[in-house]
């Protein structure tokens, strides 16, 4: 149990969870029919976070469900304030991948793409066949704000290190900052 909690804390900010729960409190009073689907999304996310260990590989099918729950919950928090598109085509859902390779990019997109930004919009696409995975995230951002965030660079370096360990010479990560758009493009040769 201790390790489960430690793991939970390591991968998703507890404050995200409390904000989602606060949204559920709001819905229970202001929009009761939305409570049930929201709690179901939340339990999918929790199940994934509690029971998928760091070493274990998960199927792309589950990975996609997890991403989807996470995105739906973020959309609930920010409502119409941000336009979110999530597009997924998984040719071989039984193929597996290590956890925590994709979600940090999505977390960053919500962190930097929902704030002091004109016309906030986030586009996420996950395409995979039985050999390759192609993952793209793009969001609008405010360069001034991004430079103030000292954790941003650390988080990014962690992912790069993990990719180098797990997919040596078998991945490609492009990060582009154009005007006020932040684009990441990750390609992996699936194992």
């Amino acid at each position: 149990m201790v390790s489960e909690i430690a793991f939970l804390r390591s991968q998703i900010s507890p404050h995200f969870m409390f904000n989602v729960i606060n949204s559920v409190v709001a819905l229970s009073r202001l929009n009761p029919p939305a409570v049930e689907p929201t709690l179901i999304q939340l339990s999918q996310l929790l199940r994934y976070m509690l029971y998928v260990s760091d070493e274990e590989r998960i199927t792309l099918g589950r990975k996609m469900e997890y991403l989807n729950s996470y995105i739906q919950l973020q959309k609930l928090r920010f409502g119409s304030a941000v336009q979110v598109d999530f597009d997924a085509h998984i040719g071989s859902p039984e193929k597996t991948i290590e956890p925590m390779l994709l979600i940090p990019f999505v977390e960053n997109a919500f962190k930097h793409g929902t704030g002091d930004v004109t016309n906030p919009s986030i586009a996420i696409s996950l395409i995979a066949d039985n050999r390759m995975l192609d993952f793209r995230v793009s969001n609008q951002y405010n360069p001034v704000e991004l430079n103030k965030d000292e954790h941003h660079g650390i988080g990014l370096n962690n992912i790069k290190r993990r990719l180098a360990l797990l997919y040596p010479n078998k991945h490609r990560l492009d990060i582009q900052q154009l005007n006020s758009t932040y684009n990441i493009h990750l390609q992996l040769q699936l194992k």
């Binding site: 409502g79 304030a81 929902t114």
Partner: peptide
């Protein structure tokens, strides 16, 4: 509050 639902909840309170 930056989250619309959180703002609605405060207002309702």
């Amino acid at each position: 509050d930056d989250e619309p639902l959180a703002l609605d909840l405060l207002e309702d309170n």
